[in-house]
Design a protein around this nucleic acid. Structure first.
Lengths: 253, 253
DNA sequence: CAGTGGTCTAGACCACGTC
DNA sequence: ACGTGGTCTAGACCACTGC
């Protein structure tokens, strides 16, 4: 009943189990204690313990099947939304040196697709170059909805984390995202900014982000230099949030 | 209590809600009924209803926050493990015409990295070319652990779904996967097989798959022609199984 | 057959949004 | 202040694994 500093009981149990996995108390391939044992050990109800191990399962650390004990699958934790959404938050969490710089920025009328996605007739487009360990690795072309444009324009050109800055300035929370990941050839601008040859491979992440209420905030086309970054997924036969999409990925901006 | 054909109650509730979302009863952006209402409507406990909406949340269809009603985020359902793991199952589920052909196949000693990943000293390497709508789109370089090699060698060269064939022949279930997604330039072999120029961009998915028990089955390096396929992710600020990984992705096979 | 995870219930209290 | 989702409990039955 006592939540001890407002962190849920199941979160604290999950933290402790995670520490035990990372520290080798439960090696990869070994079995976790049963739910009943864990419930007794932590003095919690079985349902609470189940919530805790569900967290670990979602992180890809443990697997489970009816009738058998849970198994430790690995030690590398899959990471959070923020790290997929925000380059700065990802880089910081992983201890990288990083930077960013606005190259170009302008208001313009929304294209047809943009007015549908963002629900407005005027947009702010920003071209940013971001670096990792001092090397340019990412070209970001972000289109912001009109209702956040003013706040974005107030940011410094070398703003490290746009996500955090917008939260600080107008309380904006990026809550949901949809992402499409594929590969494209570098165009002339990409090539110049990233210091690669035209036509060389780039990893592209296109995303649309909304607030808690489902209000669209931005769509972005982010291109990483090949070899600088990869996306990692851990999944199980149960369910997972990733899907392939076929063909006809013609470019429409 | 009656599970009616062994499908869980919460699954059937989730199915019905999903249908209502797809059919427009709950349009995108609208609020879902409260848990209490749903519990009454379905004559189920609140916990069961929560399990049902958790399914929809995992599929990216609805979002939730404490204190406010759940919101419908979209109508496109994120898909299952099988579709990320198996080209054939994905292609079939999405109504594509597809094919496959073994180009090369040989047994050889495992490299250092492979013997660690697969836990054996000899491996079977298979080079496959797969097509979508008659066009070659994917070069698959798969390395199988020694204990499945014999079963793989028995498959026909134009086997449509290796996953399904191995389940049929030896009851093998691919249960867990780890995937790394990035972009690379096409090598000479890739270029010839896919009919693109050398150096042109490819979307690469490297994966390692294990059984329910955590036993390694295969590692694979799959390369898609740019524009043929994209990976799609829906996520929320809560948690999700995707993460970026930085640099030094030098090729080690 | 015993043990384990999966499902379900009924009820409680709390934190947060909304009005 | 009220309604909503988030957390937690205690107990029950079932499906499956493994001996």
């Amino acid at each position: 009943m006592d939540r001890g500093g407002m962190v849920a009981r199941y979160e604290r149990i999950a933290d402790e189990l995670r520490r035990e996995i990372l520290s080798g108390v439960h090696p990869v391939g070994s079995q976790l204690p049963s739910e009943a044992e864990l419930a007794e050990r932590y003095g919690a109800a079985r349902g609470t313990v189940r919530q805790a191990v569900a967290v670990l399962a979602a992180e890809g650390l443990v697997g489970s099947r009816q009738g058998a004990r849970r198994i430790v699958l690995g030690r590398v934790r899959s990471q959070s939304f923020a790290e997929l959404h925000s380059f700065a938050q990802w880089a910081r969490a992983n201890g990288h040196r990083f930077g960013g710089q606005v190259i170009e920025q302008c208001r313009r009328p929304a294209s047809g697709a943009e007015s549908v996605k963002l629900g407005c007739e005027e947009v702010l487009e920003v071209l940013r170059l971001r670096s990792l360990e001092g090397e340019p690795v990412l070209v970001e072309r972000t289109v912001y909805a009109e209702w956040v444009a003013a706040a974005v324009e107030k940011l410094p050109a070398d703003c490290e984390s746009v996500t955090e800055a917008l939260y600080a300035s107008i309380g904006l929370v990026f809550a949901y995202g949809e992402h499409l990941i594929d590969a494209v050839a570098a165009g002339a601008v990409d090539a110049r900014l990233l210091g690669v040859r035209r036509g060389s491979p780039l990893l592209r992440q296109r995303r649309t982000t909304t607030t808690h209420e489902g209000r669209p905030v931005e769509t972005s086309d982010d291109r990483y230099r090949a070899g600088s970054v990869a996306f990692s997924i851990r999944n199980s036969i149960g369910a997972n949030p990733l899907a392939r999409q076929a063909g006809d990925l013609r470019f429409e901006r």
